[in-house]
């Protein structure tokens, strides 16, 4: 069956990319000028501490041996040990991932409906007034620094008006929704222009497709063509948007979580970077890349499942 073949092919590709990702994250620690042991131990460490760390982490072995060890550890689910927390990175990620996941789903819920609406409005009449206005708003939206928007919104809606809490995560779903509203909104405002542009392009491409001409030749009205021919064909591009969104959202989440003090993976990442907790940086980079790749894969497979043409 074609679908199974596709899945098999994609899984083989996936293995290659995952190996590549692990090589990059491994080399990340060795990119630093000087000795990785010194990097891990910190600036003020004594020579003995550095020597202990070097042998403890196997940093005195040849590079390829170190990489093999790293790879074996990855297979065993061990992505390193935080020097600052003295805990496995995987444990830290399990602890900090929920706010980030919640925020991600929240952003998708806030960003997708306006994106679809705006893209349809502009694509119905390319070059028309609505299209021009939406394009201008999109240009403006793209240039707003998301951290600045976050600070300004927390000042206005959080502090001045007191409508929303400006930090933390809360307990229970309703508090999560309340606490994460401003973070999710700031991310969504920044994301919607990017997504609208790509969906608009996909929709306009469909308006010139042969099946639209065929429908028109059969005497379908323009309204009918738009809602019954073009729009169903735009479902797949929208689905693909989700794949594009993930990488953007992870970047956005890092900044937004820092501003609103959300105890998520982004906050963990920035804390690790500033505290020079390099195994956490390495582990998080690996996890972020793997999530991006897996979401893209899921979207591709779902596309193939919905659309038989992709399977060929």
């Amino acid at each position: 069956m074609a679908l199974l073949q596709l899945i098999a092919r994609r899984l083989i590709q996936l293995a290659g990319v995952l190996l590549g990702i692990s090589i990059v994250t491994f080399l990340l620690l060795h990119m630093a000028p000087g000795d990785p042991a010194r990097l891990l131990a910190g600036d003020r460490a004594s020579a003995e501490t550095i020597a202990v760390i070097r042998s403890q982490y196997g940093l005195d072995l040849p590079l390829w041996r170190q990489f093999l060890t790293y790879l074996m550890n990855l297979f065993a689910g061990d992505i390193g040990q935080s020097l600052r927390f003295q805990r496995p990175v995987s444990q830290l990620i399990q602890q900090f991932m929920w706010p980030t996941l919640f925020l991600t789903v929240y952003v998708v819920c806030l960003a997708v409906p306006p994106t679809v609406a705006l893209a349809i409005m502009s694509a119905r009449k390319p070059g028309g007034t609505a299209d021009q206005v939406i394009r201008l708003i999109g240009i403006a939206g793209l240039t707003i620094p998301v951290f600045w928007l976050g600070i300004m919104m927390s000042r206005l809606f959080g502090v001045s008006l007191g409508w929303f809490p400006v930090s933390g995560y809360g307990v229970g779903i309703s508090e999560h929704l309340h606490h994460l509203f401003l973070p999710a909104l700031s991310t969504a405002i920044w994301l919607v222009p990017v997504l609208t542009q790509s969906l608009r392009a996909a929709l306009i491409e469909k308006t010139t497709a042969d099946f639209v001409t065929a429908a028109r030749a059969q005497g379908a009205s323009e309204r009918e063509i738009f809602w019954r021919t073009i729009l169903p064909n735009a479902v797949l591009p929208t689905l693909n948007l989700l794949g594009v969104m993930v990488a953007f959202m992870i970047g956005g989440a890092i900044i937004v979580e820092t501003i609103y003090a959300v105890p998520g993976l982004g906050t963990l990442m920035i804390g690790a970077l500033l505290g020079r907790d390099y195994y956490v940086v390495q582990g998080l980079t690996l996890v972020f890349a793997m999530s991006t790749v897996l979401v893209t894969l899921a979207v591709d497979l779902l596309t193939a499942f919905i659309d038989p043409r992709v399977r060929l």
Partner: peptide, 19 residues
């Protein structure tokens, strides 16, 4: 293929963090 597997911002951030 490998580079685009990483979220752009994360990779740049991690490299700056290490350097």
């Amino acid at each position: 293929d490998l580079t685009v597997a990483f979220p752009f911002f994360v990779l740049v951030l991690a490299i700056v963090g290490v350097l």
